[in-house]
């Protein structure tokens, strides 16, 4: 069992970790209940044991987390269980994937994540995941990136992107959220020498395809 996320959620561009350990929180089944799993994970120890792999260029980080044995779950030594009901219900099978060359524009997708940068926090509990619907707007086979017409915000990074495959109408992982595509507005007042740049969320997002995630998973220590 592994955790998948975006590299920039855990470290800066110089590969400096934001913290030696991270806290993971996930919810069982109905996210409106309080049933959840919480874990503290030492990234430094995982790194030493080769159970944590990442690639800044593709913005992918994978962390081996636990293994299942005889119906139970063995957590790796760098994982500290804070609260858990004992079973994972929100795991995705790695067999349920679609690679970038299997995708088409206009395919229907969903993102699931925690866009905690959104406001109105008094009206919503942003500690709960939110689903967003979109479509594949474009496929860039030069950089091997998926462009989605699906707004994402700070906090969505690293979240799963699910495809509704039009052939069988089943659900597959196609990648993770990397960043939103900015719309930049430049203006300049030549008379007074002022200039400014406003940056907005265009509503398009960059999705890292599952292909790159598989590459990092193959590098994990066994």
């Amino acid at each position: 069992m592994s955790l998948i996320t975006a590299c920039h959620v855990l470290m800066d561009q110089n590969q400096n970790l934001y913290s030696d350990s991270i806290l993971l929180v996930s919810y069982k089944k109905n996210s409106q209940t309080d049933s959840k799993d919480s874990f503290r994970v030492s990234l430094l120890t995982a790194l030493k044991l080769k159970m944590f792999k990442y690639d800044v260029k593709t913005d992918v980080a994978v962390l081996s987390f636990a293994s299942s044995t005889n119906g139970g779950i063995d957590y790796l030594p760098f994982v500290t269980k804070i609260s858990s009901t004992g079973t994972f219900l929100n795991l995705w099978p790695i067999s349920a994937i679609k690679k970038i060359n299997e995708l088409k524009t206009l395919d229907e997708i969903y993102t699931v994540g925690y866009p905690k940068s959104l406001s109105l926090t008094r009206n919503f509990d942003f500690n709960r995941p939110l689903v967003r619907k979109g479509i594949i707007a474009g496929l860039d086979f030069t950089t091997n990136k998926i462009i989605a017409d699906c707004p994402t915000y700070q906090g969505n990074s690293g979240g799963i992107v699910i495809l509704v495959f039009p052939v069988d109408m089943k659900y597959y992982i196609i990648g993770l959220v990397s960043q939103f595509v900015p719309f930049e507005e430049h203006w300049k007042n030549e008379a007074y020498g002022y200039s400014n740049t406003n940056v907005y969320n265009s509503g398009y997002s960059v999705i890292v395809p599952i292909d790159f995630i598989l590459q990092q998973l193959s590098l994990l220590g066994k």
């Binding site: 996320t5 855990l10 934001y18 996930s26 299942s68 995705w92 994540g113 500690n127 992982i173």
Partner: peptide, 22 residues
Amino acid sequence: AGSSAVLIHAGGGSGSGFYIYD
């Protein structure tokens, strides 16, 4: 599926992730 995202707290920030198995 609707709740399959993992909330990640790293330093002062947070992001999303998900669990997979093979």
